[in-house]
Design a protein around this nucleic acid. Structure first.
Length: 220
DNA sequence: AATAACTCCAACCGCCAAATG
DNA sequence: GCATTTGGCGGTTGGAGTTAT
């Protein structure tokens, strides 16, 4: 990996002389060998972040791990399954003993697919977009050119994350997909098309991170 | 001391979507 | 337009280590 970098996984077993498939090599690298991987027990703030994000995103381990510096999706998933899942179930059971109005249904948000085409508008204009979102010097407080739609989404996130109930604002749509209640709604598919709204799968995720980053005490 | 039960985590598996031929 | 390859993801498993009996 030092010599050739990440990306050509099919080359790795051959070049390294390993009797392993590309997927095994990739996994081994990403989950164990990569230099910046953080080891040891999860800190309190990391656990808190995992719980909050899991409530928000569900089992989107890669997204959750992306917010925890040095932690891998596998780490987060294992930690959740071995530590937090039981705790959450236990607390849920306790919660269920409360009067109905205090019990809540957990409906995780399912963000749009995080993949994007190499030919997508975002990638083509990546430098511009990234520059606009992370100005030199890391001044994240500067308004973004995508503001009009972001204002709307940002307001929704703020609304969602600061609601008093754990999952107020979330509803399950009749077709089974999660949607939003109240004044906010997901952008229509047509709005998501390139160049229309400035909102895409990336900005969706980025907005979560930006919001959580600037509102560490936000209640979810 | 033996061993059953449990915990933890690296690795495997199957699936999906995008890229490529 | 179709088949194949590739990278990536989440769910699950296997086994080593630890604890309880």
């Amino acid at each position: 990996m030092d010599r050739y970098g990440e990306g050509k996984w099919h080359e790795v077993p051959r070049r390294a002389g390993l009797n392993r498939c590309r997927k095994s090599c990739r996994l081994r690298w990403l989950n164990y060998l990569k230099p910046n991987i953080k080891r040891g027990a999860f800190q309190e703030d990391e656990v808190d972040m995992i719980i909050r994000l899991h409530k928000l995103l569900g089992n989107r381990w890669s997204l959750i791990a992306g917010r925890l510096l040095g932690r891998t999706a596998n780490d987060v998933k294992n930690y959740w399954n071995s530590h937090l899942a039981k705790k959450i179930v236990y607390e849920k059971q306790k919660e269920d003993n409360l009067p109905q109005k205090f019990a809540s249904k957990v409906n995780a948000i399912r963000p749009r697919p995080q993949r994007f085409s190499k030919s997508s508008a975002w990638l083509k204009g990546k430098a511009t977009l990234v520059a606009s979102r992370t100005p030199p010097g890391g001044n994240l407080g500067q308004p973004s050119p995508l503001l009009s739609h972001q204002d709307k989404e940002g307001a929704w996130w703020e609304s969602l994350l600061t609601k008093s109930g754990p999952d107020e604002g979330l509803v399950t749509a009749a077709n089974g997909s999660e949607g939003l209640s109240g004044a906010y709604s997901w952008p229509q598919e047509s709005e998501m098309e390139e160049g229309r709204s400035g909102c895409n799968e990336l900005s969706f995720d980025a907005d979560i991170w930006e919001f959580l980053g600037s509102n560490p005490g936000a209640v979810i």
